[in-house]
């Protein structure tokens, strides 16, 4: 089942990327898909480490749109700092607790922190992230806690 899914995704990627639909090119694509699936199969027997993607689809899209708005806002504030003659930098390194249960959720939260300009995840540890801020204000903690809650909300609840 997983094999067929992987093969379909890889074949779709080939068809979208190549854009040339002659017999030979599509045949070469089929050969590479089979080869990649075979290698993946062998790698699975070595470590058996599987990627689990368990997210709520609709809520994820909503979170993504919210994240875009956040990126726009914080990009603008960093731009103001860059272009202002005095450059009012208030650097600070602080720890932010996170509540995600899955690895994927933690990755999404850490990458979201880094993706919004002005804040940046430096170190990940059990239960908290070290975050470096360019223009630190006490409200940043609340904003990050809000983002933490939003990321936790898009995780699938069935995860152990």
């Amino acid at each position: 089942m997983r094999v067929i899914g992987t093969a379909v995704v890889l074949a779709g990627l080939w068809l979208l990327m190549s854009g040339v639909y002659t017999t030979m090119v599509v045949g070469l694509g089929a050969v590479s898909v089979v080869l990649v699936v075979y290698v993946l199969q062998r790698m699975d027997t070595v470590d058996g480490d599987r990627v689990e993607i368990r997210l709520k689809p609709l809520a994820s899209v909503g979170y993504f749109i919210w994240l875009l708005a956040e990126i726009a806002k914080s990009s603008w504030s960093v731009t103001r700092i860059v272009l202002s003659p005095k450059m009012p930098i208030v650097q600070h390194l602080f720890s932010v607790p996170h509540t995600q249960k899955t690895d994927l959720g933690q990755v999404i939260f850490a990458n979201s922190i880094t993706l919004t300009p002005g804040t940046l995840t430096v170190e990940t540890d059990l239960g908290y992230f070290l975050v470096h801020a360019l223009a630190y204000a006490p409200e940043d903690m609340d904003a990050l806690a809000d983002m933490d809650g939003r990321v936790s909300a898009i995780e699938h609840p069935k995860v152990a």
């Binding site: 990126i71 726009a72 990009s75 960093v78 731009t79 860059v82 930098i89 650097q91 880094t114 993706l115 919004t116 300009p117 002005g118 940046l120 470096h132 360019l134």
Partner: peptide, 12 residues
């Protein structure tokens, strides 16, 4: 602080 400047290009 330079790290933050780079992330403006990287995202926006």
């Amino acid at each position: 602080s330079r790290l933050h400047a780079v992330s403006v290009t990287d995202s926006a």
